[in-house]
Nucleic acid binder design. Structure first.
Lengths: 164, 164
DNA sequence: TATTGTTATACTCTATAACTATA
DNA sequence: TATAGTTATAGAGTATAACAATA
């Protein structure tokens, strides 16, 4: 029964189901769904000159005016060096300003411009619309269950990592 | 009320909640959860010499012996060029063989070796264990609800993209 | 002409190490 | 010494365009 060491020219199962064995894993389904979502959200945001990551950064700055780059990095769970070009990009687009913190001349205080706030509102609407479309086959309960399940997984793994 | 154009040295909200505005979006929660999961699964697979992507490819080949590279690309939803080095890697590790298809000398038939099959079984167990751990705060119903919600989103977006 | 696999190339996101200027 | 931001660099994962061999 177990002799597939030799080349086989097997009957191809339906190509749409060739990954059936992987579909039992939550992680694989997350990867597939996220990949699709990211591409789609990025396409929605392109007309606004944003990507998923720049939108996220802008949104956090708008909601937390005055925060420092290192705080932004913590909020987005990315490393500080990766923020430099990202913040440069937002600054160059006049969406935020980088102001020296009064109490600590090493640090920057990140603040949205009027233009940044306006664009953020539009982008939030765009992403919200997209979110609604992509979850349109889900009931409200299923949608909120999805969010809390994702957060549960994130929390369980972060707790595990911290306890190492 | 809307005058945050000037630098603010705002009171920092709890840093853990600085992304609260983004948490309402399914896509953002997917991104955060997936990023954590991918890092964690990769760490689990490293002792076996695999990553999430190489595991996925190996698993599809084991479950569909004889399939072609282009079919593998379709199954994993990645572009053909990106498979070349991936398949090279699996071949070099003696996990699969690349055999010329008898009926089409342009194509390769991908087949797992005994070693590849054995490693795949071990890796599947590893990923399954990881999946169970990370969903341990979910009920079975919540876990299967999560999987079907992710698939629903993937399907909705793919349907939309096809109808463009 | 169309398709299979390939090469070359590039872009996005992420990570680590080491530097600078402050503290 | 330690911290904030930076530079340099590297490694995954993905994408497109163009090519050779074959259909």
């Amino acid at each position: 029964m177990t002799k597939p060491t030799e080349p086989a020219n097997a009957i191809q199962p339906s190509l749409e189901e060739a990954d059936a064995a992987l579909r039992v894993f939550v992680g694989y389904n997350m990867k597939r769904a996220f990949h699709t979502v990211q591409g789609d959200v990025t396409a929605s945001l392109t007309p606004l000159g944003l990507r998923m990551l720049t939108f996220s950064a802008l949104s956090v700055i708008v909601s937390n005016a005055g925060l420092r780059q290192s705080h932004l990095a913590d909020a987005l769970a990315i490393e500080r060096p990766n923020l430099v070009l990202l913040v440069d990009e937002l600054e160059r687009a006049d969406l935020i300003t980088r102001d020296r913190a009064k109490d600590d001349r090493r640090a920057y205080s990140l603040n949205p411009t009027e233009k940044g706030i306006a664009l953020c509102r539009r982008a939030e609407q765009t992403v919200l619309d997209h979110d609604r479309r992509m979850t349109r086959d889900l009931t409200p309960a299923e949608r909120s269950g999805l969010i809390s399940a994702l957060q549960s997984i994130e929390n369980v793994l972060n707790r595990e990592d911290r306890d190492d």
